[in-house]
Amino acid sequence: MSDETKKKIKDLSAKVLETIKSDNVTMHSRYYFMARSTLWTLGLILAFSVTLYIVSFIAFVFRGNGLLLLPALGGHGWFVLFMSLPWLLLVLVFGIFVVLQLLSMHFSFVYKRPLVHTILGSIFLLVVSGVLLAQTTIHERVYEMSVGRKLPFAGQFYAHALLDRDDSHVGLLTTFDKETASYVFERRDGGSFTVVVTEETRLPPFALEFNFPVLVLGEIENGVINALGIRPFAPNTVLLRREQPGEKRTPTPRPYRPTELDN
């Protein structure tokens, strides 16, 4: 080390200590770092919880609208599935997920691993716990509250969750007319339609049961749906009743079940 460098370093050392002692520099307290660390952790927990809730809500939308039944109905089914995906929610989840990753990179157990492990691990954890959360009745209850206008927030968020497109409908098949080879179909918003089954209609490999929730694919023309496909929901599915546009909301709406129609 040259004499000039040594002198520079000596000057620097003196300068640093002088600045520190001149009271212009104060040491942050331990509590400052504890508070910062706590806020960071809370931010991470909050971001994770929000992402988890939205993921479980997406799973609820998938379940409630029978979106996973669509691929079995061929090309048109895939098209309807693509068009019915909750894109806004997916974009929202992606945004919060990025924030979650950025927050988590502050922690050594995250930044010491390849990012792909963290990303895949978080996706796995979120999807599994989101699907499990969607199996509970939490979203159904919040949906009911939203329809009954008892929800102080996110009312529209839930009210728009169960959407029927013009070519995809959820409801119950109530009777079958052998002569016209058609079903009477009660859509979940209360509308009644005739579902015509042809040779091209993709039907399940077992007999359809009446008053059992089904997904019908096909456009409506003058109250008649020419079914491209029909698929029943999983057993014990609670069919959430969808309100009609402009319908007067009832104070305590409940999901309607097949047994209620029988009565």
């Binding site: 600045t19 520099v25 040491m27 770092f33």
Partner: peptide, 11 residues
């Protein structure tokens, strides 16, 4: 660097 180190030494 050294001033920051002093300020943040409690961390």
């Amino acid at each position: 660097v050294f001033i920051k180190a002093y300020q943040n030494i409690q961390s």
